[in-house]
Computed example of a mutant assay.
Amino acid sequence: MTYHSGSRAVQDRVGVRDLADHVGQAVGQGIRPVAAAFLEQQPMLVAGAADPATGAVWASLLTGPPGFVRATGVRQISVTGRPSEDDPLAAALAAEGTLVGTIALDPRTRRRMRLNGRSRPTAGGFAVEADRVFANCPKYLQRRESYETVGRRPGEASRSGGLSPRQRALVEAADTFFLATVHAHGADASHRGGNPGFVHADGPSELRWRDYPGNSMFLTLGNLEADPRAGLLFLDWTSGTVLRLTGTARAAYAPDGERTVRFTVTGVVETPEGSPLRWSPPEYSPANPSLP
């Protein structure tokens, strides 16, 4: 099924079930040749899953030379390399049958592709057998013209239960983050974008953002309707700092239809220079709403 009861509940609340059914026709299990070619051009992949030991949901960044992610079957992608040992998803992606969501996003072309399924370890990394494959529109994606791979050595990961003032500043300066959610039969990784300041840090343990209008599928909010666990991933696109947050999220619906998501932080893992990619400055999406 494209939608479970959580997504259906949100679609009905907003009044977009018919539109969601139409958009959902583009969701499949197979990886088309154009999608396979897109994957092989990417230097990064975001994966979201639950830690098998704690149940906490995290989103993590994987990088490599183009071709490190590739389609190795009509319903399978293979990833060369694994997360570092201090990555909160290291155990999940090394296990058999982990429910995992992935998103490949190319800032150069403002294209993105999501593939959700089950992972299994391989000799050189891991593979994901797809249950759901689909693309999203370029809405709210910032264009970054180019990147270079620099010789960074990731620093030691630091862990805490809340955000420091510096980390809160990184969050509030972000124009992009990634969001991992789960439900009983799957996991998903999605993208959120906007002008800097679209995410607010109301304290060391509370974030909020407006849920901008999208494709009406409500996969993310539907997952949160069924299971509030979530993981957020913020990147410093210049320095390579990788900031991962885990916690719970809930959506509030205003009478005028506007939605706000509030995220409660329960864990933070920051890796200085965790990404070897240095991207050019952004050209903000013309779809980004103006901020007050």
Score class of each variant (00 low, 15 high):
L291P: 00
R120K: 13
D18K: 09
S190L: 02
E258Q: 15
F263N: 03
A59D: 00
H191Y: 15
A49D: 04
G81Y: 12
A226W: 04
V269M: 06
A91L: 13
G6V: 02
N136S: 10
A254M: 12
P107G: 10
W237Y: 15
V171P: 06
V27E: 13
L232I: 03
G214T: 06
N195G: 09
R75C: 01
S78L: 06
A174Y: 02
Q142A: 15
L232F: 02
G274D: 07
M1L: 13
G24E: 10
T238V: 12
L170S: 10
T241D: 15
E85C: 06
D188T: 00
R144P: 12
A56Q: 15
G214W: 07
G193H: 09
L277F: 11
V46T: 03
R159K: 08
I31A: 04
S285H: 11
Q11G: 12
A123F: 03
A169E: 12
A201L: 10
G124T: 15
W209I: 08
H183K: 04
S285N: 15
Y3A: 12
A287Y: 11
D131K: 01
R244W: 04
R82C: 12
T264K: 09
A36N: 12
E156S: 08
R132Y: 00
L219F: 08
A157L: 09
L243P: 04
V242P: 02
L89C: 10
A59K: 00
S285M: 11
A20S: 14
Q42N: 12
E40F: 06
R114L: 02
D87K: 06
S160Q: 08
Q41L: 14
L45V: 04
A173W: 02
P255C: 05
V150I: 15
R153W: 03
G222M: 04
L207T: 01
S119C: 10
S158E: 14
G24W: 03
P121E: 10
R229Y: 08
F234A: 11
P255H: 07
G274F: 09
